[in-house]
Computed example of a mutant assay.
Amino acid sequence: MALATRTERQPSRTRTFWASTIGKKTVMAVSGLIMLGYLVAHMFGNLKIFFGPGEFNAYGHWLRTMGAPVLHHSWALWLVRVVLLAAVVGHAVSAYQLSRRDIKARPSRYVHKRPRASYATRTMRWGGVILGLFIVWHLLDLTTGTVHTGGFQEGHPYQNVVDTFSTWYGNVIYIVAMLAVGLHIRHGFWSAAQTLGVGSATRDRVLKTTANVLALALTAGFLSVPVAVMTEVVS
């Protein structure tokens, strides 16, 4: 009976993994890569706005019918949303707990002796907060229409996007958030590669170049939409 009690009290492998620093870093890495994959697909979808309202609205409609006829209307879209929500929560919780663990483990007398980190590293935490707030605003603006200005039109994403980027605050919020995305990806991709054991002496330069290219391409791709609306290339 005593043996059985001791066995029952042993933490599961999942719990032990999550409690470890490497476990939290792995969750951060995997969830970050999931979100990166989504960002790449989302950017290419956004660029369809340059082909006119017909193409862009059709893309918005397809998002709700993808998987048909196997899946019901919007089921695939909701599945993507659930996976992304889990990734965002896992990423945020892991980052917060690792940050608290790092602060507790750092002797105060060494605080001023630590080498200064890069700009991207020093802004990762604030960048995460900015992105979290942006996601909430973005959903309320272009998904539910709650904070949308100009009259939200269900099923007309092209006009809704034009309305958003026809306001100064819509542009400011979006541009700041996308710059934060670029910095986050530049540092995060590299960190994820190291955590997952992909990095090596021979591959480090390739990984750093890939991180820089991804960050630059995604930032430029996302920013091209509000810039096109502001310059009336898209209207």
Rank of each mutant, 00 (worst) to 15 (best):
W168N: 15
V181M: 04
Y169I: 15
T209Q: 13
F189M: 02
V225G: 06
V213C: 14
I185K: 01
E232A: 12
Q159N: 14
L142G: 02
F222T: 02
L139Y: 15
Y158C: 00
T146V: 14
G170M: 04
K208E: 07
G197N: 03
K208T: 07
L223G: 05
V176C: 00
Q159C: 12
T210D: 11
E154R: 11
T167H: 08
V233H: 14
G151Q: 09
I175R: 00
L179K: 06
R205G: 03
L218C: 06
T143Q: 09
H138M: 12
P157E: 02
Q194I: 13
V227G: 03
F165H: 04
G197L: 05
L179P: 04
L207M: 11
V147Y: 01
V213W: 11
A193L: 06
E232G: 09
A217C: 13
E232R: 13
L179Q: 07
F222A: 00
V233Y: 14
T202E: 10
W137I: 14
H138P: 14
H184A: 02
T146E: 14
W137G: 12
D141T: 08
G155P: 05
I175C: 04
M230R: 14
L214Y: 02
G221I: 00
V229W: 04
V181G: 01
T219C: 06
L142I: 06
A215H: 04
P157N: 00
A220W: 10
G188A: 08
G197V: 03
L218G: 03
T219W: 02
H187F: 11
A201C: 11
G197A: 03
A211C: 10
G182P: 05
Y169G: 09
F165Y: 06
F189H: 01
Y169L: 15
N171G: 11
H184M: 05
T219S: 04
V198M: 09
G145K: 01
G199E: 01
A192L: 02
N160A: 12
A193K: 01
V172A: 09
V233F: 15
W137M: 12
V162C: 07
Q159V: 10
T144N: 09
V162F: 02
A177N: 06
L216A: 06
F189S: 02
T210E: 14
A217G: 13
A193T: 06
G155A: 08
H156I: 05
N160P: 11
A217I: 13
Y169E: 13
N212C: 04
G221L: 03
A215K: 01
D141M: 09
H156L: 08
Y169T: 13
T219E: 01
A217H: 10
F152H: 12
V161Q: 07
V147R: 00
V147I: 11
V213K: 12
S191N: 12
M178A: 02
R203G: 09
Y158G: 00
T195K: 00
V206R: 10
T231I: 10
A228S: 13
L214F: 03
D141L: 07
L223T: 04
T146K: 14
W168D: 14
H187I: 13
L218Q: 01
